[in-house]
Amino acid sequence: MRDRVYLYDLPIRSDSRHKDANFSFWSGLKFQLAGRSEGRTRKKMSSSEILVHREHAEIHQGEAICKKKSKELLEKMSLPKGLLPLEGLVEVGYNDATGFIWLTKKSKTEHTFRKIGRRVSYDTHVTAFVEERRMRRLTGVKSKELFIWVSISDIHIGDPASGKITFATATGMSRSFPVSAFEDDEEENGK
């Protein structure tokens, strides 16, 4: 008889193959589910978080106003204005009491930061909790490392004098880049 375990809305059969493996039950399930359901689950989580924080939030709709308000918010948090995708925005929300921000886009997009040669993918829903020089519990953002898309969960500027911005994953891996690589492309072209 096979038991079914539901995690991330996917049925996984529990049979002798899993019981004999040399890894813990939970890490085995996480390993098996990597990539298959993460996007779907994160989208559900981000949508439900948006509903929770929407009540007392400042909400803007329409591409032009969303673009303007996103830049203002990034500037207020002392983060580079070119950090988030601003094309195709449908809605931007910010709950000042909780620090929760969300961006809703028409479609998933990819952007290449030319100065550092990195491709970044932005989902239709990007959410985070923001504070001075930091975005934490970030969802909807992935960076391409070699051949693998890695979810970014934290972005912060530890020491503004260093001129570095650090991107971290939920597993604790991180990489730092110059803040200047994430300045707004429109501003640079206007100079």
Score class of each variant (00 low, 15 high):
58 E>I: 08
10 L>H: 07
191 K>C: 11
20 D>M: 06
154 D>M: 08
4 R>H: 08
147 F>R: 06
1 M>W: 02
160 P>M: 05
20 D>E: 08
174 S>V: 02
117 G>R: 01
12 I>R: 07
105 K>P: 00
130 V>Y: 10
104 T>Q: 14
38 E>G: 14
26 W>C: 01
1 M>R: 09
48 S>A: 15
140 G>V: 13
75 E>V: 11
157 I>T: 02
23 F>C: 12
148 I>V: 15
128 A>D: 01
149 W>P: 09
101 I>D: 03
104 T>D: 09
179 V>F: 04
40 R>H: 12
109 T>K: 12
129 F>D: 08
13 R>M: 01
164 K>H: 04
38 E>N: 14
37 S>Y: 01
142 K>G: 02
185 D>S: 05
167 F>Q: 04
3 D>Q: 06
81 K>D: 13
25 F>H: 15
174 S>C: 02
78 S>N: 13
119 R>I: 00
41 T>P: 00
131 E>G: 11
129 F>M: 12
132 E>T: 06
17 R>A: 13
84 L>P: 11
122 Y>E: 03
128 A>L: 04
77 M>Y: 07
176 S>H: 05
127 T>M: 02
156 H>E: 09
177 F>Q: 00
114 R>V: 02
61 Q>W: 07
88 G>I: 10
102 W>R: 08
156 H>S: 09
158 G>E: 13
106 K>W: 04
108 K>R: 15
182 F>K: 06
111 H>K: 11
138 L>I: 11
123 D>M: 05
9 D>L: 07
117 G>I: 01
58 E>W: 08
170 A>G: 10
68 K>M: 10
32 Q>E: 14
104 T>C: 11
127 T>F: 02
118 R>N: 06
100 F>L: 07
7 L>F: 15
158 G>K: 13
23 F>K: 15
60 H>M: 03
13 R>V: 03
42 R>M: 04
111 H>R: 06
37 S>N: 12
138 L>G: 04
158 G>V: 09
157 I>P: 06
